[in-house]
Nucleic acid binder design. Sequence first.
DNA 1: CCAGGTCAGGGGTCAC
DNA 2: GTGACCCCTGACCTG
Lengths: 557, 557
Amino acid sequence: MYENQIDVCSDERSESPVLGVHMNQTLTSQSSESESTNVSRSSTPDFKTEPSNEEKLVKHSTPLNRHITNENMYNINQMYQNHGQFYSSPNMFQYNRPVVKSQENRPEFNVAQNYQVKNSQNGKPINFCCVCGDRASGKHYGVLSCDGCRGFFKRSIRGNMEYVCKENNNCFIDVSRRNQCQACRLRKCLEVKMNRDAVQHQRPPRSQQIKRDSTSLASPLTTGQTSKQYIQQYQPSFYSPRFSPYNVPVKNIRADIQPGFSQDNYPNFSPAVAAAVAFQSNLANNLLAASIKNQIALKQMYQMENVSSINTSIPFINTSENSSGYQTYDEGRNETSSPEVEQKDEDNFEKSKIHSSASLAHIMNWIKSTPTTENLIDSTTKILYSAIRWARTQKSFVNLSLQSQSTLINENLNELFILQMAETKSIMNELNILIENEKNDEKKALIQGFFNLLQKFNLDKVDPMEFYLLKSIALFKSEINLEDKQKIEHTQEESFMSLYNYNKLNYPNMPRFGKLLILYSDIRKYTNTKIVEEVFLRNIQSKINLSNLLLAQTTSA
Amino acid sequence: MYENQIDVCSDERSESPVLGVHMNQTLTSQSSESESTNVSRSSTPDFKTEPSNEEKLVKHSTPLNRHITNENMYNINQMYQNHGQFYSSPNMFQYNRPVVKSQENRPEFNVAQNYQVKNSQNGKPINFCCVCGDRASGKHYGVLSCDGCRGFFKRSIRGNMEYVCKENNNCFIDVSRRNQCQACRLRKCLEVKMNRDAVQHQRPPRSQQIKRDSTSLASPLTTGQTSKQYIQQYQPSFYSPRFSPYNVPVKNIRADIQPGFSQDNYPNFSPAVAAAVAFQSNLANNLLAASIKNQIALKQMYQMENVSSINTSIPFINTSENSSGYQTYDEGRNETSSPEVEQKDEDNFEKSKIHSSASLAHIMNWIKSTPTTENLIDSTTKILYSAIRWARTQKSFVNLSLQSQSTLINENLNELFILQMAETKSIMNELNILIENEKNDEKKALIQGFFNLLQKFNLDKVDPMEFYLLKSIALFKSEINLEDKQKIEHTQEESFMSLYNYNKLNYPNMPRFGKLLILYSDIRKYTNTKIVEEVFLRNIQSKINLSNLLLAQTTSA
DNA sequence: CCAGGTCAGGGGTCAC
DNA sequence: GTGACCCCTGACCTG
Ligand SMILES: [Zn+2]
Ligand SMILES: [Zn+2]
Ligand SMILES: [Zn+2]
Ligand SMILES: [Zn+2]
């Protein structure tokens, strides 16, 4: 029975001839569910009065369906979905369109979504969940679905859950098995095109408001009490951990902040940020919040990184390098406070306008061909490892297809490398030595320009989180239309947003965000992978190969 | 400076005598755009009244940032085209600034009282909700407000609701956060002087259930279906309106608003931004507000530009070029809709990885040395003029010392030029012809790469405001420690912020901000003034000289 | 135009 | 974690 339902649902997209067939009669029996019964809301959904199971089993059908168009609709839908994101956000700038108001049943609407059976008695249609076949309580997130699937979808999206199927990702989802495999249930939800964008941010607990008794003037007291109560219970309720990926960090952020991360440890995550996070999390319904949330996720990734760095067998720059994501912030601090950072003030080093064209490859090659710089070679290799390993620790990265991963690395390793280098303060000394020993003016200028660029990162005291986000920005982009393009773009955008908000929160009133982005684009000037490397230098390939090797290595590991 | 933004607004206008004229002009030029056609109701859920099937498919929306599921940008663009109209509506934006009422001690609040955007077609003003900044559906309870706030206020008053803020009673209320804190939303409602006395008693349920089901047998009146909540609220007969509900307040509040600003317009300033400005002005106490404020400044600059464009004797690209800040959006649209834009889909033009190193100078020189491109030469010259003239119209720019101005131009003209070029869609054809005629593979690849870059701007439909802000970002930076360094950095940062917020407001949930910045940094790759030009090409100097000449010219003018 | 009402579909809750 | 159930919102109608 259920199979039919489901099939029908999915078949809509493909075309199943049987479609119209299963209409049924039992539905009619269903009549009882009149509005009279449901006290709360008139019409809707609640179907409080459930028919017996038997009744449910019988099922639905869908007469209509011109699923013919569904194929196309798929795409259209997709597009519109996106659209909906920005244009139709429920709250954002809505523009009413004075349109024809043929309210109601536009059959088309139901078409793709699913099955209705008309209740003969009251004429009320009975719908079934496109995901599990249970009785639908209405359309949710764009799809006719039951409350269970609705709730499940909401929790999954809200929590950014990532489930793993223990089988082959083909578990059958029906009303009795829907709880057997979350991964497949979620997959099914998405398959029937539940719109994740329709899931809104969490709102504050509802209990807060009270109805003031009109007769009692003395409400203030009451109010005050209530208020207090809420203040106290609010925190916990909001921060109550849901489950794995997302909410955990929310909790952590606060918890952590004291123990592992208190001021000393995580300088860049100032109390202000913590407060902001807390505050924002409360609201959790706006851009800022979204970004903050992302920061939380980032923080979590941080932690993961630390873990993996422990387990990894790949060589990487050690603690002394203060690599964001690998080191504790303490180290970052120490590093920052180290005297060498002060170095010559290159603030307006425009004097050396002679940057000249340089690329990572060029520099690396040159470095490697220079006898006096064994340390540097060693360092750069380590940095390269670190950069790649960093990428490998990015959940958003490893979740991409291997091809995408490879592409991103190929296209962006240069930038990652330079960022990693900029973060590795000890490299500056070596570079400096290099410059001093260089006789060729042009080369010297080239390296000097590069040095100056890196130095800027030091002078601006780019912090680990910023490095982290910049690396993320650098990594998640591709000129190629990868299959994961959406994910990639989204991740990059989130990184941008996080960087923005992080800056505004941590360095308020400073022109820092723009500065960082200009710095980043300066880096890109040095990483004309296609331009400089391919046109002027060819030997970059060896590095790329190395990268791929590493990538494969870490992947298999 | 910016602090006064709002206040200044009216003043600013008075500074430029020509302003009024311009406004009128633009207004008239506004032709076709009818809000009714482009606006799809965002709303939540159902989009009951949708015109086309496709649109119907759009559902829900959400303030959240979720990632886009779309397959590729091309589609996104397509979609965007459909709806983009109203978001980056050509509607000129204009906000009324009520004269500060003596009774009001808080001018900030008055400021936001009301913003209007005139619909050019029917002259119908578009207003924004004083509470949340959403589009207002009219005056409700004495205040311009949206349906959401209207309903909320009504329910709150009717139900005698007393909410408790979980924060510090200072939650920011905007369209995306209005549901986060009822207490603050209600407070805001009252702050903007919604009149609780205008809320009437609950009336008996609308009887005839005309809708629902034609076959409905039934008891019309019985409709006990009113939701529970209302049942209890129903009795409160105690709640007697002071005097007749509306009357008084309605009149009062609005009286003062009108005068200041008639509706003229502000091309490129979409309703969304207008809305943002409207509500932000109210609080003006957070990041977003700061940024929005900046946008107001931008608007002013816009106006100045227009003025100067009228007065200037410098040649500049004319209307057909759709240069942000100069043209109305209509033209941009036409431009957009022109077939040429469709061109070959270079979406994943990574195939031609052979970008090779290229610089503006290189291209310009090459172009100029190519006989078959007289048009192009002409165009590029015009573009150059436009770019410089644009800079000259920037208040923040002209306020700098001459030396600073010169430096900024020298350092950043290349970027400005390319941005201007990207914005000048007609140039694409010429470039394309150029490419086709090119025999030298390397050169061809070079130009192709440049072309592709510009094309990306088209494909992403970078809008005038974005171009404007990108140009500002490009212009306000220097490697040199100029005396105006602070100002410059600040201006750039504001541009970044504006771009960020503009994007988040107008293209919510799209990975657009990051994309734009990557595009921008791509441009920078082509403008290695120091690197490419100085190392590979020297003849850029002539252009720089020209620039300075122009600069001086305009300065003196 | 602006009161009123409606109800689909968001949200949250809390036994289970 | 799940999901039946209820509350709240706001686009759309009616008067
Ligand atoms: Zn279900
Ligand atoms: Zn499974
Ligand atoms: Zn509102
Ligand atoms: Zn509040």
